[in-house]
């Protein structure tokens, strides 16, 4: 199947790109790899029949949040990431913990059962268009999380202004 091949490509690319993001010494390189990562996540959304999510992923993450990351990197003016040996060295204890977690997650994966598909099948979403299906659910059934989202945005906005303005004064 072609779609399985695409999924394997996206899954593999996302894991590799995430590793590149966290292992680069130069923060600007990290941010650029992250840009590529966001595009691949958008591709994954596209293959999950969620084209609006794919567009949002590109517009908000690749367009907005990445700029925020870049500003923070430039604000700090980091030539190279600070590394503190205590937290960045890879000791046997950390390895044991990571391996244990990996084994636990792998074991629990076998008992993973996909939930029964809801009423929105591929054909129904095709017929109704993805944005309409999403909107109908978001503004009726999921109204509470939607209003909570506005509060989270408010907190983000006020938090940024409080932190930044305090630094401006001092």
């Amino acid at each position: 199947m072609v779609s399985i091949g695409f999924f394997i490509y996206f899954a593999f690319a996302i894991v590799v790109l995430s590793l590149l993001v966290v292992t680069r010494k130069n923060p600007v390189h990290s941010v650029l790899w992250m840009l590529l990562l966001f595009f691949h996540i958008a591709g994954l959304y596209l293959f999950l029949n969620a084209e609006f999510m794919a567009a949002i992923q590109v517009i908000v993450y690749a367009g907005g949040i990445l700029v925020l990351f870049l500003f923070v990197v430039l604000l700090m003016n980091l030539r190279e990431e600070l590394s503190i040996g205590k937290y960045t060295t890879f000791g046997p204890t950390g390895f044991t913990f990571a391996l244990g977690l990996f084994v636990a997650v792998s074991m629990s994966l076998s008992s993973f059962i996909a939930a029964p598909p809801g009423k929105y099948s591929i054909d129904l979403i095709k017929q109704e268009t993805h944005i309409k299906a999403l909107g109908k659910l978001l503004y009726t059934e999921f109204i509470y999380p939607f209003e909570v989202a506005s509060l989270i945005l408010l907190v983000a906005m006020i938090g940024a202004i409080v932190l930044a303005k305090r630094r401006l004064k001092s």
Binding site: G64, L75, M157
Partner: peptide, 19 residues
């Protein structure tokens, strides 16, 4: 070093972008 004002503008942009 960038001025921190850029950060406020970027943050406000992201918030209203999501809105």
């Amino acid at each position: 070093r960038f001025a921190i004002r850029f950060y406020i503008i970027a943050m406000l942009f992201v918030v209203f972008d999501v809105e």
